[in-house]
Design a protein around this nucleic acid. Structure first.
Lengths: 419, 419
DNA sequence: CAACATTTTTTTGGACGCTAAAATAAATCA
DNA sequence: TGATTTATTTTAGCGTCCAAAAAAATGTTG
């Protein structure tokens, strides 16, 4: 159903558009901004004037030389997002621990901060408060006023319920249903949201190349588990309870090997690191502890063995690839994506999986659908998760907070121009 | 990315909103329309005045008695969509043949027309032209001017490529890649679009009850095959090539029984009528012709046998239910819908499938996800497909054609008021 | 170096669509 | 008949966009 439209909507949408364009394409002259957004120069002058008055944007005073070689005409004055307008925070929760990344309104990040906080040992109702405490301490240390932080985004390895703001299950915790958003918001009085790793990587990819990833893309995350981020019509999809895209726990074979989730035959039970390790050890029974984290150097040893031609190791990777391939085939049958991206640390061993993935796709998917999908393996940078979280968080500010231009959102700011 | 907004957008959106509201809630007084849309009475007067001038809407002259019991105050004059503004056409293509349903702008339909046209025997390049010819003939017979038909929607049993407008594969044809949209548009000069049955049923459900189905719903269609319509965030999802939701050809078991599509182990090969029949006949080998249509009375016999306790028949239905259950479990893991709807003629035997579907869901899906999904079997009316097609077609007119209020779209119309 | 050319930005004046408030219309009530 | 009530229309004004004109700021040229 459509929604009522009025001049309020027009203002919000165009202000949001200007902010997003500046965020994506860096400092831009008004004339360029007009060209990019489709708005007239007059409108750009008006909108940017307001944004400058509110301290969200400033006009750059160019260094003499910096500007491109001298041209005729009035020189451009470029506009940029004002870094001082706001701060935001990305929190990443994984088996490796909890990490904080502070960033300013322009998206510039501070050094990531690894918290000394044992997620396993912490009682679940203490988790939120402790993180909140660490945030306060670290913000103070960095000279960031807590009130200047306008939004927090949390990325979790595992299942994230975007509606309730809890973590129903994650390999980083023993307990279930860890409350995160609620306690952070309560203690810090800062709006907060939560999502899973794979979705954040999807966000980061869209930000990198909207043309390539902005349509319908499935981002398969290989790591300690198998995750999925779905980009549908250019937007990350969350599902009814914000818990879509559980590729890792999509069943592969009824009554297959035990999975960490307690079911049998999930994709992850074959294709995650522990599934591969179990197959290599040929121990499918109860004496293999699925909950134990697989050590990275053990995994590396196994990869080297497979590369050296070891049959047992090779078979384990082949099987993992086959199951992954069938999972992707099922995914393609349901979603018909134009692109499937493989990401995450698990792609390191993708050469060992590749052939069996391809073979499974051939067996499990009609040619018509297969031929229209582009596959891609993206090198995994650990920072992608924080980047994606920040992208999502800042977009929320651009669209839903600062785009409104309400009184409450005006940022205190000294002058109209800063260098 | 956001889009530029201006008064053009406001006009389009609000005009569309008024049309959609009138379409959904029947004749409405201006005051009620204002309440429903959120627009002010002044705006409603202005917008409805234009729509009336353009002949899209008319104000009803109430019969004396009809109006509710006498109230004080100026009586309401209700507005309604003008049936004469436009005609549209829904075409349904299935193994049962081709059917036409003409409707006017208010959505009132004429009697469905079954074409005498053998889809199997018709060469694929003749199909479009023949249907076009039949449309001309039947429109003439019904006294509907061809130029009054502003849009055609086609629903297909099988795969529909919404982008190319062709039918890559359908049980109704021997050939593949049947062109449909292109020839119809060329011959009739009427905009045309195509989609699959399950999506049309999804559209019909949304129109019936937006609150119930408008969020994230998976509509599983059981019939000669197994189809799927995905409603994501209130909108039917089409995928990159308009070919999403191939639940029937989502692999269940690698190297399983032969499917009509030529692969092995597709869900449909177990759970469609021919899959069930094959299992009952216990002939999994090549001597069972998967391409032969299963006769409805044979299917009915099998159902009766199962209901009477026949083991072979019961086992066949159990197995079909189990596989369907695992398919739905995988679907839920990927999409996290709030509701799964089972529809189609195959639901007639749902009592025979129910238990094994439930059991498979228990085995194949983590409890967390399962508990949040509501299941529902909707009684299947054959008209749902035409209804859904018309809903989609008329919405397109409401939003994208008549909402613009361009000169070209003004409908010739005699007076401002008709009885 | 002054007049001209060029390009960017701002200002101006008007259009469009929405809305609150006032006016009008059309009925019932007393 | 006049008061009351409710629905609709008109009026006056507001916010936003935009085309065109004006202004600003620089380079070019004779």
């Amino acid at each position: 159903m459509l929604k009522k439209a009025n001049s309020d909507l027009v203002r919000r949408q165009n202000r949001g558009l200007v902010l997003e364009t500046l965020r994506q394409h860096g400092p831009l002259a008004r004339i360029t901004l007009g060209y990019q957004t489709g708005l007239s120069p007059a409108s750009i002058t008006s909108i940017s004037g307001q944004l400058i008055d509110e301290g969200l944007v400033y006009s750059i005073i160019e260094d003499e030389e910096v500007s491109t070689q001298a041209k005729r005409g009035r020189p451009q004055t470029r506009l940029a997002l004002n870094p001082q307008a706001t701060n935001v925070l990305a929190i990443s929760i994984s088996v490796d621990g909890v990490e904080l990344v502070f960033a300013d309104f322009s998206g510039a990040t501070r050094e990531p901060i690894k918290l000394r906080l044992d997620t396993y040992a912490t009682p679940k109702e203490d988790f939120g408060p402790r993180v909140a405490h660490e945030i306060k301490a670290n913000a103070k240390r960095l000279g960031i006023a807590l009130t200047s932080i306008k939004r927090i985004g949390v990325a979790v390895q595992g299942v994230a319920d975007t509606i309730s703001g809890e973590i129903p299950w994650s390999p980083a915790f023993c307990a279930r249903d860890i409350p995160v958003v609620r306690p952070l918001e309560r203690i810090l009085s800062i709006p907060c949201s939560i999502g899973n790793n794979a979705n954040m990587i999807a966000e980061a990819l869209i930000a990198t190349d909207r043309k390539k990833y902005g349509g319908t893309t499935a981002v398969v995350f290989l790591g300690h588990g198998v995750g999925l981020g779905l980009i549908l019509n250019g937007v990350v999809f969350h599902g009814a309870n914000g818990r879509a895209a559980e590729l890792g726990h999509m069943n592969h074979i009824p009554d297959g090997p035990l999975c960490r989730c307690g079911r049998h035959g999930c994709l992850e039970a074959f294709s995650a690191d522990y599934g591969i390790m179990r197959m290599a050890n040929d121990r499918r029974g109860t004496d293999f502890d699925v909950h134990a984290a697989v050590r990275d150097d053990d995994m590396r040893k196994l990869e080297l063995a497979a590369e050296a031609g070891d049959t047992v190791a090779t078979n384990a990777f082949n099987r993992a690839g086959e199951v992954l391939g069938f999972g992707i085939a099922r995914l393609i049958a349901l979603i018909n994506p134009q692109r499937v991206v493989l990401a995450g640390p698990g792609t390191r061993a993708y050469d060992l999986l590749k052939d069996s993935v391809g073979e499974a796709l051939r067996r499990g998917l009609v040619h018509d659908l297969r031929k229209n999908v582009e596959f891609e393996v993206v090198p995994f940078g650990k920072d992608m998760i924080a980047t994606g979280t920040l992208v999502e968080t800042l977009r929320h500010l651009d669209r839903d907070v600062y785009a409104t231009g309400q009184k409450g959102t005006v940022v205190e700011f000294s002058g109209r121009k800063i260098a």
